[in-house]
């Protein structure tokens, strides 16, 4: 079992305060994590913000960073244990295969890890902003692990919490496939899934600006799907 397979929780910080105060008081001695035996000390542990909104108790998760590279996240404290990022992205459930709509908080955490943590190169700027907690997303599962995702806004969804403006068309907001899984048509699969989810819609939006990688996938898609050529728009 992996964190995403455990019973759903309301918050991601179960036991974290206890873990933190044990570290602060020195109650635990010489705790180490993973094959590189990174010491779990108060100095190596920090709160990693996962969502831009929601109650403070479930906006962040306790994380372990590398003592050599403070930007590198090694593990997360979930449901009373430390888990490596690769294990957090894994599943033991055979039903998690292909594209699955995100429902649980743990699945939302996976979207966050894929978009902001595991694919980030040292010194690289963040490609995506933090997602709101209620964002519509789908995860792509392959070989027992989450390997990609896309997020979208349905037509009529609120643009923000205050102006009352709504999306005039469904918009694909962000899309990502893990580097190790690229070049196998998975990006195309994500894009086609978005288009078929909203096949009744006349126009479909892709959020601006488009990355080079996404343009390459779009070129491939539109090269063979004439029906989509008049329907896909870059939107601001």
């Amino acid at each position: 079992m992996f964190p995403v397979d455990l019973p759903d929780v309301e918050e991601l910080t179960s036991g974290s305060e206890r873990c933190l105060s044990a570290l602060e008081s020195g109650a635990v001695e010489d705790q180490r994590f993973g094959c590189s035996q990174v010491p779990v000390t108060r100095g190596n542990v920090f709160w990693l913000q996962v969502f831009e909104d929601g109650p403070p108790s479930s906006r962040s998760v306790l994380a372990l960073r590398s003592p050599d590279d403070p930007d590198q996240v090694l593990a997360l404290f979930l449901q009373d244990s430390w888990w490596s990022l690769e294990d957090v992205l894994r599943t033991a459930s055979p039903s998690r295969t292909g594209l699955v709509p995100v429902a649980s908080l743990a699945e939302r955490l996976l979207v966050f890890l894929l978009s902001r943590v595991v694919e980030r190169l040292p010194g690289e700027q963040q490609l995506f902003l933090l997602h709101p907690r209620a964002e519509s997303c789908k995860l792509l599962w392959e070989g027992g692990a989450a390997v990609g995702f896309y997020t979208f806004k349905a037509r009529g969804a609120r643009v923000d919490g205050w102006s009352g403006r709504c999306y005039a068309l469904p918009v694909l907001d962000s899309l990502q496939v893990r580097r190790s899984c690229r070049g196998r048509g998975l990006g195309l699969r994500l894009l086609e899934d978005f288009c078929s989810t909203f096949q009744e819609e006349e126009l479909l939006g892709i959020s601006s600006p488009l990355s080079e990688g996404l343009v390459a996938v779009l070129r491939k898609l539109l090269g063979r799907r004439r029906d989509l050529r008049d329907r896909l728009y870059e939107v601001e």
Partner: peptide, 14 residues
């Protein structure tokens, strides 16, 4: 604001 993606690709804008 919106612009057609296929047209943009054809015109080399992307």
């Amino acid at each position: 604001a919106r612009r057609n993606i296929w047209l943009g690709i054809q015109l080399g804008r992307f």
